[in-house]
Design a protein around this nucleic acid. Structure first.
Lengths: 120, 120
DNA sequence: GAAACTAGTTTCCGTGAAGAAACTTATTAT
DNA sequence: ATAATAAGTTTCTTCACGGAAACTAGTTTC
């Protein structure tokens, strides 16, 4: 049987709200990249992050990390090392973003093929 | 030797690139909302879109639609109606973004519950 | 003739996002 | 003594994102 998906206005409005919430939480030029990196590598120091995200500056990295921490997506731990280091990890809650990250990666990867095969 | 190679650097770098590509394509304050709306309702006029996305102005809507069209995510069709109308639809290719939209919606929806249960 | 509707475009403008570079503080290495 | 490193913070500056409003253009209605 043919399943006709009826889009009830109320349900759509709710979904749109949810989408807006998520997008807002991940807004900013670098948050998704930071989350992505921390999903793949499960612990990184500030400098490691800075080096592994091409183009980001210390100020931006610091700011974005703070916002992600406030929203409990990542954790910040100061380590008592010789030169003090700070360890950033993704939280269990932050890890729930993994499906989104995975979809973004899969789509982007497919998009490359799409561009390659359709154009030029 | 407890070398635990979970994530090979090269593979991660590739994924990060793919993520960046996708994020860039969907950059801007409104693109995801527009895509989301057009995934739910499969055809909308300019004015319908404008009304259904609270806060967007004509200029922004026009600009974002152009960019989405250039990337073949939506189609634009001028209808020969009394006052001329323009129909925007999501393309089959644009529809491949649906999993991303769905994940964003699901996560945002869950996030509401998370905020509600953990805080206040 | 004036107003209203569609789908924009254009102009003008302000703010905030973001970058660059210098600076801080503490410790270690040369 | 000097330099280097980590993890930022602060300051200064700029550019582009995006909003408001007016305008175009064609058709229909009052």
């Amino acid at each position: 049987m043919k399943k006709k998906i009826v889009h009830e206005p109320a349900a759509c409005a709710g979904k749109m709200l949810a989408i807006r919430d998520t997008v807002e939480l991940l807004s900013g030029k670098w948050k998704i990249q930071i989350i992505g990196t921390l999903v793949f590598e499960n612990s990184m120091k500030f400098m490691e992050l800075k080096r592994s995200i091409p183009g980001i500056g210390a100020k931006m990295l610091s700011k974005e990390l703070q916002e992600l921490e406030i929203n409990q997506l990542i954790s910040r731990t100061v380590c008592d090392t010789k030169p003090i280091t700070v360890e950033y990890k993704i939280t269990p809650y932050g890890l729930t973003l993994e499906p989104i990250i995975a979809e973004l990666a899969a789509w982007g990867s497919n998009h490359r093929k799409h561009l390659f095969s359709s154009q030029n």
